[in-house]
């Protein structure tokens, strides 16, 4: 578990500089955004639909390739080098709005897969880690279930366990609760809260403003691909400075 970045244990774990991304259809999703994320920090990202939140998150693990600017995770630059990209993906877990569990595999197999194929763990060793992770999200009794047998909230908790399978240093959450029935949102947020308390570095895109304010260390308000306002979470939600932040928050709160 020694990343290249252990040389600078106190520096930011994620450094983003002047990141821009325009899609083929001409939509400018990110416009010169820069930010540093400290170790164990929880950064929440809020903004209107289509403002570039997902694109920003996906640029952090190379699911999307920026046109210009740099992303460095734990000392590893995210560039054309596939080896670097792989290293970053091992260090960064991602949780999707739609869970994206593998429906043809059991819960256990979902979590084993990357351990065996990427970390080259032996099956029994992988399964041990899997059980431990499932215990963490409160689903150790569902190892042999297929995802379709679980509720939405349970599926998302499995997805979180799966994203943790490679022991990442950073977790990205893209609207992890937006596809859930209201009564299931709480159980997922609880897991995220626990992770934050354990000191996991997290970048969280969410529409749950209460949760964002409570768990977030810092918050970013993004609009039209720009970071309009970056501030400690309590400050951004309680006393936003920018006109557009105020307008947005007054609409969603």
């Amino acid at each position: 578990m020694t990343g290249n970045g252990s040389v600078t244990p106190d520096g930011p774990i994620i450094t983003v500089e002047s990141l821009s991304k325009t899609f083929a259809n001409g939509v400018k999703a990110l416009d010169q955004v820069s930010i540093d994320v400290a170790r164990s920090e929880v950064l929440v990202v809020v903004g209107p639909s289509g403002s570039g939140k997902s694109t920003f998150l996906r640029c952090l693990n190379g699911l999307e390739t920026a046109d210009s600017g740099t992303v460095v995770v734990d000392g590893i630059p995210l560039d054309d080098n596939p080896q670097n990209r792989l290293e970053i993906r091992k260090e960064v877990g991602m949780v999707f709005q739609q869970f994206n569990l593998f429906p043809h595999m059991t819960v256990g197999a979902n979590i084993d897969l990357a351990q065996m194929r990427v970390r080259k763990s032996a099956p029994r060793e992988a399964r041990g880690v899997t059980i431990e992770l499932l215990r963490k999200v409160g689903l150790e009794d569902r190892v042999e279930s297929y995802p379709s047998r679980l509720s939405g909230g349970q599926q998302q908790r499995v997805a979180i366990a799966r994203a943790l399978a490679l022991r990442p240093k950073v977790m990205l959450f893209d609207e992890a609760t937006s596809a859930l029935d209201p009564e299931m949102i709480g159980e997922v947020l609880d897991v995220m809260r626990d992770l934050a308390a354990e000191g996991m570095t997290m970048v969280v895109v969410t529409h749950e403003m209460g949760f964002a304010r409570e768990v977030g260390d810092r918050a970013v308000f993004i609009d039209e691909g720009r970071f309009v306002e970056v501030a400690p979470a309590a400050e951004l939600f309680d006393s936003p400075r920018e006109e557009r932040t105020i307008a947005f928050l007054s609409k969603v709160l």
């Binding site: 091992k90 999707f96 569990l101 897969l113 990357a114 490679l166």
Partner: peptide
């Protein structure tokens, strides 16, 4: 298949 299946793989470091 939903493209999310590919993305889940990639995000896990699978090729």
């Amino acid at each position: 298949l939903p493209y999310g299946q590919w993305e889940a793989c990639y995000s896990l470091g699978l090729g």
